[in-house]
Computed example of a mutant assay.
Amino acid sequence: MSKRPRMEPVRVAAVGCGVVWRHHLQAVLAMEPRLLVYTSVVEPDLSRRLSALKDSGAKKAFATLEEALQADPDQELFEAVDIMVPNVGTLHEEVALIAQKANRHILLEKPISVCIASGQRILQSQGPEKVLAVAENAQYWREVVEAQRLIQSGAIGDVLTVRAKFWESAHPALNEWAADGSYEAGSFIADAAEGFVFDGGLHWLRPLRMFLGKAQSVSAVAGRALPHMRGPGMTQALICFECGVTAVFEAILAPGAISEQPFFVIQGTKGEVVLDGFAGGGRIYCIQDGKMMEQAVVILVVPGR
């Protein structure tokens, strides 16, 4: 029997080498077999650019995507771009359009852009012969997938409500994003109108849609947890879904200490599913033989949430 030919890895340029980049690189280096390889890095900050070049083993480093594309008109160095720049203003759209004009495959960090019109322009500009993929990993968290299966199997009966909590600390000793300066005055998250909730909340909203389907209406309030942050640093929302269930979504960037809290609590007529926080794992609670029973859903530490 002849062996299948080994697929050559996709040659990729990493665009934006901050905290998200480190998680993308970690995932790529853990691939077996290696499906893609970073052949170049693009980062305006010199220190980060040199560090990314060393850590990735890329061949070349550039300050801008335009510079990288000018140096590689025939796609010999990279055929795809992994866009991890801050999602503020129209920056995602600007960088994506540059890559699209150069006819490259695109992996774009979530959210696509800051508004529907900008996102639609990105989608409409992508050529049919090239791939445009959005990097949003919550739909693949094993705990979320297992919770969806439990709901669909009827293990907890009919869903009555879901509570979702997106939380972090802004203290640099407690959070790698804070240690990287992401929440300091002058950072893109602090200065942008979108703020903390918009940037990370998608990781909680996507699972809610997986559990409950399409949202119908939302009632919410937002506020500031950090005085220097322009956009929302916290929010409380009631989301009504077409299935008739109402979910509670809460988000907060705490200035200091905050306790370990579940990401999701799914209450049904026969039991409850709890998905734990950043350490991963979860539990299902049900009644057997007249007693409350607790059983592990899945135990998994997921790096780079």
Rank of each mutant, 00 (worst) to 15 (best):
F62D: 09
I258L: 05
V131N: 10
G233W: 05
M293C: 15
P5S: 07
P232Y: 00
E176L: 07
Q100G: 15
L29M: 01
A138D: 00
G277Q: 02
H23C: 05
S51R: 09
F249I: 13
A133F: 07
M7H: 13
A68D: 11
A13T: 07
Q261P: 11
M292W: 14
A179I: 09
P128M: 00
M234W: 08
Q124I: 12
A190E: 05
I252E: 06
N175D: 11
G119I: 03
H105V: 05
W141S: 04
R224G: 12
A173Q: 07
C286M: 08
G271E: 01
A164C: 11
V273P: 08
E168H: 06
A117N: 05
L107Q: 09
G268Q: 02
V15E: 04
A164L: 00
K130P: 13
R305D: 04
D82V: 08
P227Y: 12
A185H: 07
V265N: 07
Q75D: 08
P9D: 06
G18C: 03
F241A: 10
L108I: 04
R230P: 10
A237S: 15
A225F: 14
C17E: 03
S118T: 12
S47M: 06
A68L: 01
C115M: 02
A133V: 14
F211Q: 04
L238R: 15
Y38P: 08
A147E: 02
T64C: 02
E272G: 13
K101H: 10
G290E: 11
S56K: 05
G200P: 05
W141Y: 13
R11K: 08
G282F: 05
N175M: 00
P9S: 01
V28H: 04
E129Q: 15
A254V: 08
G57K: 03
L202G: 13
M234V: 04
V20G: 06
S259M: 02
A27E: 04
L53N: 03
D82Y: 03
V159T: 12
A147W: 01
